[in-house]
Computed example of a mutant assay.
Amino acid sequence: MKKWRNLTALAAGVALLAGCTTNPYTGERQASKAGMYGGIGAVAGAAVGAATASKKDRAKGALIGAAVGGAAGGGYGYYVDRQEAKLRQTLQGTGVQVQRDGNNLTLIMPGNITFASNSADIASNFYPTLNSLVLVFKEFNQNGIDIVGHTDSTGSLQLNQSLSQRRAQSVASYLTANGIAASRISAYGAGPSQPIASNSTEAGRAQNRRVEINLRPLQ
């Protein structure tokens, strides 16, 4: 009993160590999402493997279960780790922010670099950034792409709702025109309903004028 428990702990530890990466910005070692999920999967897999094996084969079953469970648990997390790293590298210096929450990635594109004021026409100097995103979305094609337009609260609600919808649709249309499957994409406008800063200041309103791309696992 003690032996296979020790082997389970060892397998989980290996999975976690394998998921450790070096933060390129701080130089510190950190656990990736894949490593954490893999470690959890390894523990669960080891328990199942040991429980279903005969008494003399429990240690072997624990190791096999840990390996299978770790691979399954870390699979999509590892995929998102790689995609996040590629997006951060690709978007460095563009003004587009990359945020991560679990297995969901969000790209925040400020309005001042994507569209002219009160326009849904994509700014010409933003095309290179979108073209780079197209390449990443083609390489990492296991995501749904939810595009959401946002505005500040200046002007009528109807005008802002329409503008945010048209801006989101402009980005969606550009992606599909450049080879991203329409079945992966949704686009809608949130108007001023989801501010991330105060609309009482110009700086806050500038932050609220944005387009977000939310990358989620395909159903």
Rank of each mutant, 00 (worst) to 15 (best):
S200T: 09
K55Q: 14
G27W: 02
T94V: 04
T154N: 11
V96R: 03
A71T: 11
V14N: 03
N125Q: 08
R166I: 04
L135T: 14
Q99H: 14
V134Y: 00
G149K: 04
A72M: 11
R205W: 06
I108F: 07
G69V: 06
N125W: 01
N199T: 01
A66K: 02
N118Q: 08
A71S: 10
A168K: 06
H150T: 04
S119V: 02
S156D: 03
V48H: 01
N160F: 02
K3D: 03
A46G: 08
L17C: 13
T90G: 07
A197I: 00
S124K: 05
L175G: 01
Q30I: 13
K60Y: 07
R167E: 04
Q207G: 01
R82Y: 10
G73T: 07
T22L: 11
R166G: 02
I213V: 06
S54P: 07
T22S: 10
P217G: 12
E139N: 06
G75W: 14
A203E: 14
A177N: 14
Q142A: 11
T114Y: 07
R210K: 15
V80P: 06
R5Q: 15
S193F: 03
Y79H: 07
T8N: 10
S193L: 09
Q161L: 11
L159K: 13
Y76V: 09
A172H: 11
G189A: 04
L10W: 08
L215P: 00
R5N: 13
C20I: 08
A12M: 15
Q99A: 15
G61A: 04
A181S: 14
N118E: 07
A18G: 13
N23S: 12
R166L: 09
A181N: 10
A62K: 00
A18V: 15
S183V: 03
Q207K: 05
Q165L: 15
E139Q: 10
A59R: 10
L16S: 10
R209K: 14
A46Q: 00
V43M: 12
V80E: 04
L63V: 15
S173E: 08
S200V: 09
L175C: 02
C20V: 11
G93F: 05
E84Y: 06
G41Q: 03
G69H: 07
D57I: 04
R216T: 15
T8G: 05
K56W: 06
D121V: 15
I113C: 05
T106A: 12
G49T: 00
L159I: 13
N214H: 12
K138Q: 11
R209P: 00
K55V: 10
T201S: 12
D152Q: 08
R100G: 00
G45I: 05
A66Y: 03
A53P: 05
A206Q: 15
S54A: 08
A123E: 02
N199K: 03
S132G: 09
I196R: 11
D152K: 11
Q158D: 14
